[in-house]
Design a binder for these strands. Sequence first.
RNA 1: GGUCCUGUCGUCUAGUGGUUUAGGAUAUCUGGUUCUCAUCCAGAAGAUCGCGGGUUCGAAUCCCGCCAGGAUCACCA
Length: 473
Amino acid sequence: MSDIRTRFAPSPTGFLHVGGVRTALYAWLIARQGNGQFILRIEDTDKVREVEGSIKHIMDSLRFVGINWDEGPDIGGNFEPYKQSQRLETYKQWAQTLVDSGRAYPDPYTQEELNGLREKSKSEKKPFLFRDHRPEKFDKWDGKATLRFKSDPKPYTWHDEVLGKLSTGPEVVDDFIIMKSDGFPTYNFCHIIDDHLMKITHVVRSQEFISSTPKFLNLYEALEFNHPKFVTLPFVMGPDGKKKLSKRDGAKDILDYQKEGYDPRALMNFLATLGWNDGTTQEIFSEEELIEKFDISRINKSGASFDEQRLIWMNGHYIRSMSIEELYDKVRDYWPKSADNFDDVYKMKVLGLVQERLKFYSEIPSLTNFFFEDLEINESLIKDNKFLKNLSDQEINNLLQIVTKSLSGSDFSVEDLSNRLNSLLSETNKKPGELFSLIRIVSTWAPSSPPLAESLSVLGKKRTIDRISNYSI
RNA sequence: GGUCCUGUCGUCUAGUGGUUUAGGAUAUCUGGUUCUCAUCCAGAAGAUCGCGGGUUCGAAUCCCGCCAGGAUCACCA
């Protein structure tokens, strides 16, 4: 075991979308690669925004993608508790040490006064800095009042593992709230305490925190903590490619992908390569390969937009590479209702026929329903077919009679059906486009289906003949 | 507005001064695989490397300026 420790620290304010999961994945990969520890910590310090049930939802999401944690609120660990709402005493103590060392003070202003000061700066077109209004003398902290960090403004230059050298001037370092009036700490304060106490070595988070890093640096100094390494991830952008992906703009819950029947390996592979690659042309990576090959220094600096098409392709790839037994096991919950009356052997045959055209499991009903139920007759499939639209009703009836007669003598093995279908071509003097289209349509009434002989073989003699004879004009 | 980050085919990306007429993948289109859909195979189209200067024999790659997009400036994380 190495001393590498990373964490994913979501706030329980709802579901996780691909952006959040990607952040968790990268932190997880860094820990797993270094044979270190991955920690799940819940940052529930905002009681107003908290959403009931989201902690479980978040954990389910991570588990689905295959991200497991070594320490967390559900399993404990050497640095528990892992829910910030249960660590209030710790934050209060550290706040007190800042007060004692003169680096924190009770905020003397009311919300209204503060707003007034901000307005004033705005109308004067000057940037607002709280420290310009810092009281000369501080009151004693009663342990309850809003507490502010007393900053020590200075320019900073620091190293980011992804972005490289970053620097800012003193103007971005200001006094900020560390303890709220409700007794809870702010993120800006408590994440630093926790990362330190939990011995986090790499802080993996997305770019929106880049501009507050100097404030954090100032706080680390006041606390006399060494800061961890910063691994700042580029944004996952929305489909428009401009703004970062957000729930507001319709980003999907990662568990929706589970519901739609995506393979977690595809999701992990897709997410890992959204902003990282190994420098070769390899696109498909197993979990083991990702852990082995992931490299912080090869994480991209620029944002990548989330293209669901690419995920769909990748998922199809994983589906196609599975054995039929494995796939059958995974799609158990996705069959149409009408499949309930059929046994495993039959369903597995059906699955074998649609495997290569399946992109995600929830497509199964629309791809396979005609194997389990008689679909409604849809004349337009014939009338709009380029081969069949010119055939008269009489001709169609004649053809179907000949077909029925031939198939009646078949054992419905794929081989025998293929032979008979071929003979029928010469017997009727029709092109495959005409004859096969007609048979395919009247025996399935589906807009598309797997190859004819295979489909009919699975469908079986009775259903096939019944359906053909059921169609008479 | 201040500060900071980013900028290669529609999209994900390779590329760190010279086998680059910018490579791969995906998406799109075409052809083939006796019907459809898909897979697979073959092929096409698609990027004035954000723009302008400079350094250099040579720049997507180095330097300067500009532009565009984004993030952030909360008792949210």
